[in-house]
């Protein structure tokens, strides 16, 4: 019996616009098992968001394939964006209930579920507020709640904590891990932050850019359940350094490519 997974084979994507052609991804292949938490790091512009959109079905690949072997039905994929993805014209409650609403869940039911999710995340008091009345951190948590409440099979997250300060990130990382532990969706998590990638994920994919490829896969040394308070693991420094050098080479190479 084949285990359900996400299988990416020789994926390529080129953007064509009147201003030029950009090969965002060239020949990307990897596999993620159901319930796995995978992080993706890479230099800016290497095609991470493009890859995520392909995985989410927002974009169509022009070469290669994305397959979902072993699922009884096509897996439910939900995106969490960088920021400002809550609909400003809906209350926080309606935003969180939005996915359920689109799935046809009855009003009472979806509101109850959304409210429960908000309560878990400590946002119950803000259910009737509009996004502009929330802090950046609260908004991002609400966006995460909106995704989790639909119980996705695959959660695709594009630097969800990018705009937040260090404290807030810690809090939400913690929250995210415990949410994940409770339902165990497959998570595909893009980040700039190497430490964050190592702390959250089971595996870190390191990308190279222009055109984007997977350069290396690094398994996280930490087991589960994970304790984020113990951030000063001795191994982490070595790994960070390793990834950092990989990325530094990349960034330097990209700068040379640009200046040619």
């Amino acid at each position: 019996m084949s285990e359900s997974a996400l299988l990416v084979n020789h994926l390529a994507k080129t953007y064509v616009s009147p201003r030029g052609t950009v090969t965002a991804l060239a020949d990307v292949s990897f596999r993620v098992a159901a319930g796995e938490f995978v992080a993706l790091v890479g230099p800016s512009g290497c095609g991470k968001s493009t890859l995520l959109r392909l995985l989410g079905g927002q974009l169509a690949p022009e070469q290669g394939a994305i397959e979902f072997p072993g699922w009884p039905r096509p897996p439910k994929r939900r995106l969490v964006f960088q920021e400002h993805s809550l609909f400003p014209w809906m209350t926080v409650l309606d935003n969180v209930a939005f996915g359920l609403e689109m799935e046809g869940v009855a009003r009472q039911e979806r509101r109850a579920q959304a409210m429960a999710q908000l309560t878990v995340m400590g946002l119950a008091d803000f259910a009737r507020h509009y996004p502009h009345e929330l802090s950046g951190g609260m908004r991002q948590r609400a966006a995460i709640a909106r995704a989790f409440v639909t119980q996705p099979d695959i959660l695709l997250m594009d630097e969800p904590l990018r705009a937040l300060d260090a404290q807030m990130r810690l809090v939400i990382q913690d929250e995210l891990l415990s949410l994940w532990e409770s339902t165990r969706p497959m998570v595909f998590y893009i980040t700039h932050d190497i430490e964050e990638a190592l702390l959250l994920a089971d595996r870190v994919l390191v990308m190279s850019g222009q055109p984007g490829r997977i350069r290396e896969e690094i398994p996280s040394p930490f087991g589960r359940p994970r304790d984020l308070t113990g951030r000063t693991h001795p191994e982490i420094e070595d790994l960070k350094w390793h990834i950092w050098t990989l990325l530094e080479q990349e960034v330097k190479r990209l700068l040379q490519v640009k200046s040619k």
Partner: peptide, 28 residues
């Protein structure tokens, strides 16, 4: 916002629902 279109599509909004929940209030 592009992000709102993308979010709406990703959460399965189409046709009438897209009109009622995104296009009308977003353009209001």
């Amino acid at each position: 916002d592009t992000t709102h279109w993308e979010a709406a599509a990703n959460y399965g909004a189409r046709g009438r629902a897209l009109l009622q929940r995104i296009i009308l209030p977003g353009s209001l």
